[in-house]
């Protein structure tokens, strides 16, 4: 080791050889980064640009495409009730999941923050659904929600709550909410673990000081835990937002967007526009709107939470 550091001065002293080596090294670094960059450029940004092109045409994928300019976008914005319905669904789904999942995961994290045996066991259990596939989770909840033999309605009927025994996934009023509940069930444990990691960083002295000052449990939460947990909340909410926009797998398994598109979100709509209606250009225009909405929601959320954070 000492011999190595000992050779360092000669490097900075003489010039050419190390400089040439540095140049060669830079080349090698480029070569190391290239395969990933190239694949990503071709199969992520490439399709992205193709999407822009397809959004300007009318095309069924079989016959020749016809250039329609901004026609797809105009129709989408001015004359498509389904599109607005799905936009509303998507925003409502995201809102429900973000609010309830963040709240629940924070509460459970506070309950289970101490590393006791019981707490670790409960964390392991709560986290468990995260490793399952959306298809498996969707199938399990299809069974639970089933109006005739599902466990949920069996439970309500048994306790004389027949009025609560609904056709959860089959009626327009409840389908999206029922899926949102499943999504929260699916990922609360994952977000809880992130919160626990954040809460364990809070210096214990702050709580001790608060206790000395006679702060109640609620005041401790309000003035110590919550302010200190805001950075984690930003991470949790941002991740949950993206995750809820990606809920295609779950919704496709449970309802395929039905009944009457009541539980459809963007990804499901785009999929159906391509494969059921064969309107490729129109689906491309929908995808571009999808991106815009996603960016808008993300930016809005960051700004909201950041201003809260600065206070």
């Amino acid at each position: 080791m000492s011999a190595r550091t000992g050779s360092a001065p000669t490097i900075s002293g003489s010039g050419l050889a190390p400089r040439r080596k540095r140049k060669r090294d830079a080349g090698i670094y480029y070569a190391m980064g290239l395969p990933a960059a190239l694949i990503f450029a071709i199969f992520y940004f490439g399709p992205f640009i193709l999407n822009l092109r397809y959004s300007l045409v009318k095309w069924d994928g079989i016959t020749d495409s016809e250039f329609v300019g901004l026609g797809n976008f105009i129709k989408l914005v001015s004359d498509d009730d389904l599109f607005y319905k799905v936009l509303g669904n998507n925003l409502r789904f995201t809102f429900l999941v973000v609010i309830f999942q963040t709240l629940l995961s924070l509460v459970f994290a506070i309950f289970l923050v101490k590393n006791t045996k019981t707490n670790i066991a409960l964390r392991t259990l709560y986290f468990f659904p995260t490793i399952l596939s959306s298809v498996s989770v969707g199938i399990i909840w299809l069974f639970l929600y089933d109006p005739n033999f599902g466990a949920i309605n069996l439970f309500f009927n048994k306790f004389g709550l027949e009025s609560l025994a609904l056709n959860w996934l089959g009626s327009e009023g409840s389908a999206l909410n029922a899926i949102a509940f499943t999504q929260v069930w699916f990922h609360t444990g994952q977000m809880m673990v992130i919160y626990i990691a954040g809460l364990q960083q809070i210096p214990q002295e702050l709580y001790e000081a608060a206790e000395v000052d006679g702060a109640s449990k609620w005041q401790q939460f309000r003035f110590v835990t919550w302010p200190m947990a805001i950075p984690t909340t930003i991470v949790v909410m941002a991740y949950t937002t993206i995750q809820s926009f990606r809920a295609f797998d779950l919704i496709f398994t449970m309802t395929q967007g039905g009944p009457n598109n009541a539980s459809s979100i963007f990804a499901v709509l785009i999929y159906q526009t391509v494969f059921s209606e064969l309107r490729i250009g129109y689906a491309a225009a929908q995808s571009i709107f999808f991106v815009l909405v996603l960016v808008f929601v993300t930016v809005l959320q960051r700004r909201f939470l950041n201003t809260r954070y600065e206070k």
Binding site: F40, F43, Y44, G46, P47, F48, L50, N51, Y54, G61, I242, F245, R246, F248, A267, I270, Y271, V274, I280, A283, A284, S287, I288, F290, V291, L294, V295, T298
Partner: peptide, 17 residues
């Protein structure tokens, strides 16, 4: 960018490509 915008938005061109 790829993190913020999921690949799902590319389903149309990826299918064709």
């Amino acid at each position: 960018i790829g993190l913020a915008i999921p690949g799902q938005v590319n389903i149309v061109p990826i299918f064709i490509l």
